[in-house]
Write a protein that binds this DNA or RNA. Sequence first.
DNA 1: AAGTGGTCTAGACCACTGT
DNA 2: CAGTGGTCTAGACCACTTG
Lengths: 246, 246
Amino acid sequence: MAGELEIDIDRSSPVPLYHQVAQAFEQAIREGALAPETKLDNEIDLAKRYHVSRPTLRQAMDKLVRDGLVVRRRGVGTQVIGPRVRRSLKLSSLYNDLQESGAQPRTSVLTLETVTAEDEVRDRLGLAPGTEVYHLRRLRSIDGQCLGIMENYLPLSVGTLTGAALERDGLYNVMRRQGSDFQMAHQTVGATVATAAQADLLGISPGSPLVTVQRTALDSAGTAIEFGDHVYRADLYSYETTLMNH
Amino acid sequence: MAGELEIDIDRSSPVPLYHQVAQAFEQAIREGALAPETKLDNEIDLAKRYHVSRPTLRQAMDKLVRDGLVVRRRGVGTQVIGPRVRRSLKLSSLYNDLQESGAQPRTSVLTLETVTAEDEVRDRLGLAPGTEVYHLRRLRSIDGQCLGIMENYLPLSVGTLTGAALERDGLYNVMRRQGSDFQMAHQTVGATVATAAQADLLGISPGSPLVTVQRTALDSAGTAIEFGDHVYRADLYSYETTLMNH
DNA sequence: AAGTGGTCTAGACCACTGT
DNA sequence: CAGTGGTCTAGACCACTTG
């Protein structure tokens, strides 16, 4: 019932207050310091305790709700959600993929060239006919096991790409360093079966199931900066999400 | 450049103001009344025009950003995002599935029984060993084509389920009518290939690719009220999402 | 320097839940 | 009924981008 929690709020930090508060709660929940089913104190008391205004504290709670760590009910209160539904079923998450792309264990570049964009690629990236784009094919592996084949198309305006930089830092880190910071991405996840060529690269049998991911990434101006068409071994990869009703 | 937009705000409506504003903008964008790349007026002017406070207007804009309709940049402004990245690639979306579950064209119930929950199901639903649960198998089709096989497990406490009600109204509508309103769901999307039995039901060849979806749905108290294990034809089904960087 | 969105405050009233 | 989260206001200051 308590929900006591010591938080060091650094008001001189550039990190927003609501973010500091949300992060402290998230850490406490993930570490188990706040057990599932625990009822937190009400918003007004929490705001007083951490010396922030109620709207600021609410902003933090909104974040926890969106991240699926906590449930709020009007007239009742705020409760920590059980860990059962937070547990992962399989391996890596596509979301982490996006945010920590460079941190993945191992990526080898198979192809790095510039080509004239085909229609679908042109359309996705919003380019004029005949425009040249980067075409990139990479093999991602984890603990020596091949996980998937990643194919990317990027406008030349993202800067200079080299195989060495890509293998060392990952695509998104290379792009960020050159000033292309992505803001959002649209994705389509589906399924297919491995062709002979794919099976050969991945070390599996033809006809094995593959998870397909198509992604269009946009920068903060809403301009498309990358189109990706990826396949992953279904036995090593799945895509996880949390859906909210509001 | 204008971004003018007539909105009827009904202050006596139970619908929150920020929701009314956001919905008006969303409709205008989807209908094309606000063209892509259009720059909206600044927050303060918009707040004045619609006679709401700036925080309320910001709450509406936050929603548009989360839904991927609009991009904001500090010091620059707010822009409508191009439709290119909003376009669907394939058929139905799992998100709509959740929110409009009863509205799907056709669902036939193959199995409706109560069984003793297996370990995985018990774990997902947070039930004690030996507990009885509903076991439900349905075939979903669209325009006479079989789309997928849906298998669900539910605690008996959700109420009475009948095949007729399920086929007429859909699972979530039946549950809602009996007081089980879901708040959030965790999902895992992956791939597999059709077994002979699955292929037979779906009218495809064994070995064809299938999209797999496992879903645990929670009510507003954080209690698990449904576990679903579904497969869909990969040529008719894919899963779409928008990822935000923050 | 001017204009934008990002953050924050200190209140207020309401709708809903439990007793 | 008292307590909770949900909504809303009218300001304020700051960080960032653009000219």
